[in-house]
C-alpha cells in the first residue's frame, strides 16, 4: 500500500474516533479538548488535499481561537455555579437517527452530483491555496463584500457588549 493511500486512512480513523470522543465524553471540558484534536486533524486533511492556506487558518482560528474561548467559558461557568457540568446523554436514539440520516444524505449527494465528482478529479487547480491568489480575490475582486462582512462582525461585537452591560445594570438595581 502506498503512503498516499495510507495517510487518508490514518487521518480518517483519527478524525472519526476523536469526533466520537467529543460526543461520548462525560465531561464538557474533555469534549472541548477532543474537539480541538478533531479540528487539528481536519486541518491535516486540508494539508493532505493541498489546501495549505485553509489548514493554517483552520488551526489559527478554530483550534487556537475558538477552542480557547470555549474552554474559558466552561471554566468560568463551572466556577460560578460550583457544580461539575456532566453530560447525561439524553435522547440517544433520535440523535443517532438524525445524525446518520444527515451522514447518508451527504454521502448520497456527494456520489450522485456530477459537479462534486468533477471537483474531486481536479486535485490541484493552478493557483489554488496560494496566499497571493487569495489576497487578490479578497482585496481586489471581492473587496466590498469583505468589508460589509467585517462591519457585520463589528456590529455583533458592539451588540454583545450592549447586552452584557444591560445585564449588569439589572443585577445591580
Amino acid at each position: 500500500m502506498s503512503w498516499e493511500l495510507l495517510i487518508p486512512i490514518v487521518l480518517g480513523i483519527g478524525l472519526v474516533s476523536f469526533s466520537l470522543l467529543v460526543v461520548l465524553s462525560r465531561h464538557l471540558f474533555r469534549s472541548a479538548v477532543f474537539l480541538a484534536l478533531t479540528l487539528v486533524f481536519t486541518a491535516f486533511f486540508y494539508i493532505f488535499l493541498g489546501a495549505e492556506l485553509l489548514a493554517g487558518i483552520q488551526i489559527l482560528l478554530y483550534a487556537g481561537g475558538v477552542i480557547t474561548l470555549i474552554i474559558f467559558v466552561i471554566l468560568l461557568t463551572e466556577r460560578v455555579k460550583m457544580e461539575r457540568l456532566e453530560e447525561t446523554h439524553r435522547s440517544v436514539i433520535p440523535a443517532l437517527l438524525a445524525s446518520s440520516s444527515v451522514f447518508f444524505a451527504l454521502i448520497y449527494f456527494t456520489w450522485s452530483s456530477p459537479r462534486i465528482r468533477s471537483l474531486a478529479v481536479s486535485f490541484h487547480p493552478p493557483g489554488f491555496g496560494v496566499s497571493q491568489e487569495l489576497a487578490e480575490s479578497i482585496f481586489r475582486k471581492w473587496l466590498l463584500p469583505f468589508e460589509v462582512l467585517s462591519l457585520l462582525l463589528l456590529a455583533a461585537i458592539v451588540g454583545a457588549l450592549v447586552l452584557a452591560r444591560r445585564d449588569e445594570e439589572v443585577s445591580n438595581s
Binding site: 492556506l53 487558518i57 488551526i59 489559527l60 483550534a63 487556537g64 481561537g65 480557547t68 496566499s131
Partner: peptide, 15 residues
C-alpha cells in the same frame, strides 16, 4: 506560508 503556520501552531500552546 511559513509565517502563518508558525503563528498558528504557537496559538495552540495555550490549550
Amino acid at each position: 506560508l511559513g509565517l502563518l503556520y508558525f503563528s498558528a501552531f504557537g496559538s495552540l500552546i495555550v490549550v
